[in-house]
Design a protein around this nucleic acid. Structure first.
Lengths: 140, 140
DNA sequence: TGAACTGTAGCTAATGAAGTTACAAATTTT
DNA sequence: AAAATTTGTAACTTCATTAGCTACAGTTCA
């Protein structure tokens, strides 16, 4: 269970919301589609809400809806909203500073990490939620 | 401890090996630079060896060395050698097949995942171990 | 008032990485 | 031939993280 599937779940539920823009969807309904627990969905929606992608309402007939059009939500926005970490992790423990390589490798890797992450981000920014919705419908 | 730093460690020890191409380096020596246990290094070297990047010798004065020039080892080769998984994970549990979105989202995400991973791979293939060695020395 | 929601705290279970000890097998040195 | 060194690998522990679950206070609608 250690693999972080939050991005996948986020795209899933946002696609659901995109298909029902006129009404609120509640967390139980979304959870049933993702096949998980409603609290997992609510935690995810909390992140998406903080990034301004969705808005939730408490109370009866409450639920969540998108704040803007699916074609205005880039997948990079989603990626940023859920905290997925980096493509690869740096050293867990600091390398040995008495070794020339150990002393300098971290900064080199850190720059590389940033560049790779930027590439991922740029690639994801080429797609919107509307693109995903279309693909999902096509396959249906 | 759950963040996978094998790529970072792999680049680290390969840089060490690149700086000592004429002789074997043993796992204790490498472990001291990475600041970890020798067995962790040997496990990593086993992966790198299976991908043909390094060759190890048992016995006294044994150890590990590169099989080819640092400028012939792309960072994408390293990424492939250590099993770092994907940029983002797909659903842990299969989504609900009774829902149109649940039924089709996985294949859409899977294709996206492949494309993103390919982008990472291409970006990493632009750098070699020789580039890393140079950067590490420059900083020193 | 009562029903239906979200938001969130707090717990358990499952997974995976890293760290450690131990030891057989291989190889070199003496 | 014996001793020393080193890899390869199994087995275990520890730690961090994700996901799943229950419970409940607070909000909103009818």
């Amino acid at each position: 269970m250690a693999a972080n599937s939050q991005f996948a779940m986020a795209v899933h539920i946002l696609t659901m919301l995109a298909a029902s823009r006129d009404k609120n969807l509640n967390s139980s309904y979304l959870a049933a589609s993702v096949n998980t627990n409603a609290v997992v969905i609510r935690r995810l929606l909390a992140n998406l809400g903080q990034s301004g992608l969705v808005i939730s309402q408490t109370g009866a007939n409450g639920g969540t809806r998108l704040t803007r059009c699916p074609n205005e939500i880039k997948l990079s926005d989603v990626y940023k909203a859920v905290d997925c970490g980096e493509v690869f992790a740096l050293h867990g423990k600091e390398p040995n500073r008495d070794c020339p390589v150990g002393r300098n490798i971290e900064s080199v890797l850190c720059n590389l990490q940033k560049e790779i992450d930027k590439g991922v981000y740029e690639k994801l920014s080429q797609y919107t939620l509307a693109d995903v919705s279309e693909l999902v419908d096509c396959d249906a």
